[in-house]
Computed example of a mutant assay.
Amino acid sequence: MDLIEIIVLALLQGLTEFLPISSSAHLILPSRLFGWDDQGLAFDVAVHVGTLLAVMVYFRRDIVVLTQNWLTTGFSRTPNTEARLAWYVVVATIPAGLAGLLLNDWIEANLRSTAVIAATTIGFGLLLGFADKSRKDGVSLVHMTLLMALVIGLAQALALIPGTSRSGITITAALLVGLHRVEAARFSFLLSIPLILAAGGLKTLELMDSVLPVDWQSLALGVLLSALSAWVCIYYFLAFINKIGMLPFVIYRLVLGLVLVAFFI
């Protein structure tokens, strides 16, 4: 990979990991437009590490509070609000984890095409718009229930399909079950931590079995750029989402999907 490829792909990964606009659709465009080769397993690990660092640094206080309360009251008969939220993150992670173990290879072999990515980018973009338009005021995470967490977790499993967008589908489901915009985004970001950790861990294990040489300078730059872009993305998304709503992202997804259809299918 040359410097331009590293910069573009790392920034794209950092931004699209948390915006509801599909990282798969964005990572396929540079390769098709410029004829770039696949970035490879090592770089995949690097940008996963970067995005994980960003979300953990941003939500460091939440992580500490949730973990402490989960360990102290989470296993009692009367868990407090923070302990319940920690359990909801665990419950909502399970469906995607199981689906990944059972279906990941089949999805990689059958659904990783430009046509699928274009269709899911458009289809789930419209669903996001419907969810945002149909929501009213929404409730906070304090009022979240186990059923709401399970619905969001089942929706997250759909993110294995390329073009769906993990953040997009979880925010959509959170809005549909009644969460406030900011709270829906916050829960989606917290929910990303165990999944990114698991995905990065699996890719690291695969990398350890690989005999290919590793360009550590390129990987370090990938970690840095993906972490910075992801942190900026989280900060501004949470700051402005209640004012701008989801419509700009819906329009963007529709345009992106149509570009994929028009030029690459």
Rank of each mutant, 00 (worst) to 15 (best):
M1V: 09
M1T: 11
M1P: 04
M1G: 01
D2Q: 02
D2F: 01
E5N: 11
I6W: 03
I7G: 00
I7K: 00
V8R: 13
V8N: 08
V8Q: 12
V8K: 13
L9T: 11
L9Q: 14
L9Y: 14
L11G: 10
L11H: 00
L12K: 00
Q13H: 13
Q13F: 10
G14R: 01
G14A: 02
L15D: 02
L15I: 15
L15K: 03
T16H: 04
T16Q: 07
T16G: 07
E17R: 04
E17L: 02
F18V: 04
F18C: 08
L19Y: 12
L19A: 10
I21N: 01
S23D: 10
S23I: 00
S24K: 08
A25S: 13
H26I: 05
L27M: 14
L29G: 13
L29M: 15
P30S: 09
P30I: 05
P30R: 02
S31Y: 02
S31Q: 15
S31T: 15
S31V: 09
R32K: 15
R32E: 14
R32C: 06
L33A: 12
L33H: 07
L33F: 11
L33G: 10
L33R: 10
F34H: 08
F34Q: 10
F34A: 09
G35T: 10
W36K: 01
D38P: 08
D38R: 15
D38F: 00
Q39E: 07
G40E: 14
L41D: 07
L41S: 09
A42Y: 10
A42D: 14
F43G: 11
F43D: 05
F43Y: 03
D44Y: 02
V45W: 09
V45Q: 06
V47D: 03
H48R: 12
G50W: 04
G50E: 02
G50L: 06
T51R: 05
L52G: 06
L52Y: 01
L53F: 13
V55T: 08
V55A: 09
V55W: 07
M56K: 03
M56N: 08
Y58P: 12
Y58Q: 06
Y58S: 09
R60W: 14
R61C: 04
D62K: 04
D62T: 05
I63T: 08
V64K: 15
V64R: 15
V65E: 15
V65G: 06
T67W: 01
T67M: 11
Q68F: 10
N69T: 08
N69Y: 00
